[in-house]
Amino acid sequence: MPKLVALYIRSVAIGFALAAVFLGGVLWLDIAGLRGLIFGSSMGLVAAAMLWVFNGVVFAGVQFAIAVMKLAEADDGPRGGTRAPVTRPGELQPVRIRSAR
């Protein structure tokens, strides 16, 4: 299996696990009365599944984006420097001219 596919699958698994923890926390803390709505409805299981899947998609996307950004090679170039402008020979430079007024 290609490394990128394995990375994607791992990110999706982490994202959906985080979504399950998030949904558990929302239900445990009864945020916005969702626990009462989900447990009091005959379609509560569908609502909980939709919350888990939709949050899982978002969290998986964030996990994958973070993982892909971490793949970037470290920039070993020079750090810092001076604020002096870089001038090249033969390049035009601005000249201050005083007004006669």
Rank of each mutant, 00 (worst) to 15 (best):
A49Y: 05
P85A: 07
I97P: 09
V26E: 03
A17T: 07
G24K: 04
A32T: 05
V5G: 11
F54T: 02
G24N: 13
L51H: 11
V5C: 11
G36K: 06
Q63G: 05
T82K: 08
L23F: 03
Q93A: 07
R88V: 14
P94C: 00
L45E: 15
A60I: 09
P89C: 04
V5W: 13
A100F: 15
G81A: 09
N55T: 12
V53E: 15
R10P: 14
V86F: 01
R35S: 03
G15Y: 00
A65G: 09
I66N: 07
T87G: 01
K70D: 14
L34H: 02
A84E: 12
E73R: 12
V26F: 01
A13D: 00
L27F: 11
M69T: 02
P89K: 13
L51W: 04
V95Q: 03
R98S: 06
L4A: 15
F54A: 05
G33C: 09
M43T: 12
G25L: 01
G40N: 04
I14S: 14
F16M: 12
G80F: 00
W28N: 14
V86P: 03
F22R: 09
G56P: 09
V26Y: 02
D75G: 01
E91C: 10
L23H: 06
G80S: 04
G61Y: 02
G24Q: 10
S11N: 13
A17F: 14
A74K: 03
L7D: 03
R98P: 06
A48M: 04
V46I: 06
A47V: 04
G81K: 06
E91P: 00
G81T: 09
V95D: 04
F39C: 08
L51M: 13
A13V: 13
T87M: 12
V58H: 03
L34Y: 00
F64N: 03
I38W: 00
T82H: 14
L7C: 06
G61T: 13
G36I: 05
I14W: 13
P94H: 01
A19S: 11
D76Q: 13
M50D: 11
